[in-house]
Design a protein around this nucleic acid. Sequence first.
DNA 1: CGTCCCGCATGACAGATGTCATACGGGACG
DNA 2: CGTCCCGTATGACATCTGTCATGCGGGACG
Lengths: 213, 213
Amino acid sequence: MTTQNDTGGAATAVRVLLAEDQSMVREALAALLGLEPDIEVVAQVARGDEVLAAARAHAVDVALLDIEMPGCTGIEAAAGLRSALPELKIVVLTTFGRPGYLRSAMEAGADAFLVKDAPAAQLAAAVRKVLAGERVIDPTLAAAALAEGANPLTDREREVLRAASDGRTNAELARDLHLSQGTVRNYLSTAIQKLAVRNRAEAVTRAREQGWL
Amino acid sequence: MTTQNDTGGAATAVRVLLAEDQSMVREALAALLGLEPDIEVVAQVARGDEVLAAARAHAVDVALLDIEMPGCTGIEAAAGLRSALPELKIVVLTTFGRPGYLRSAMEAGADAFLVKDAPAAQLAAAVRKVLAGERVIDPTLAAAALAEGANPLTDREREVLRAASDGRTNAELARDLHLSQGTVRNYLSTAIQKLAVRNRAEAVTRAREQGWL
DNA sequence: CGTCCCGCATGACAGATGTCATACGGGACG
DNA sequence: CGTCCCGTATGACATCTGTCATGCGGGACG
């Protein structure tokens, strides 16, 4: 899905791409940004895997990316944009202020990281700041991300934990991941210990809230 | 939190209350509704338990309620509004199109039920329709709600399942809920059977996606 | 090149979880 | 006043889950 509305806005207006899967929220954010005379939303997409093409097609200056999207995540989209269009500024916008998300967003090359419960004024402000070359991150969240340290889980552990997250049993996990049942249990066991919890369900909860899942 | 902005809008404009915990989304929705000449957002709150007071204080015609909010849910707020201010129209707006949510919203006296991935235009449309005495619900979702039937869990089963949802062990649940450990297991067992799943984690997932948790 | 650590894997064992039969008091409903 | 369902409880049993000792292969480092 790609919407064009190149009408309106000053000739010098910042050209913004908005990527967010919930139509109502996306269009509402567009309305909000539309109130700013120096900002123009020139493209909207509802899927992560449509971001790059839309950014190219509409000569976008700033991309505003939600994280949770079908197709691919905003983080992955950010990485793609960063390598394909290095000039483009990237603002990652998310519901969840998870330290791991902030870390991944920054590693993917984001210029700003905003949570949706921040005041709306910060959105336009962030767009202007990244254009001016600044980086915008919530200091509290940055502190949390640094305090928590990096994701302690190995790839395999994360994979198994993610697969286990909706309640699948060890036998199913073993089949799906082509592992022995015992191996699945070991990965879950080490994940449980690394996360300092007592069972897989707590491990899932904890990994989720850190953005490590 | 209560914001007043009685300025602007026609004298005959619909007076709308907006309840949504994420500031950015809330203010964006306000901006969106603000574009409609016949609609005026006269109050905004970020918590469910502030809805009733704000509705009273601002002579609101229509309340737009998100479900997931601190304080109390939009469903609970709707029930409170319905009994205290029977004239008021209620639109429930939610991220998740869960059949159980629709059912509860309707039982709580909502006049409309919208999901956030519907097109933005439906929001203003719904406000106008409920004012005209119509009810607005997504037909697909209504069908799903009817097909699924009502929540099969007893109060106690739901309570135990909810408490178990973040990974607590039987012993902890028993202590917290003042039950014997065996009783906890029985409740979880019956819940697991009613939901046609194979363990507590799947039961939690399933109950959640139905809006039964 | 040996050694050490890490990721990965396996199986044995103990403890947690899920099932089932059974039981009892209380409220609802016919 | 039976009958049924709910909430509560117990104990026995089977299965699942978490821990641990152990082993293998590869990369890092001295």
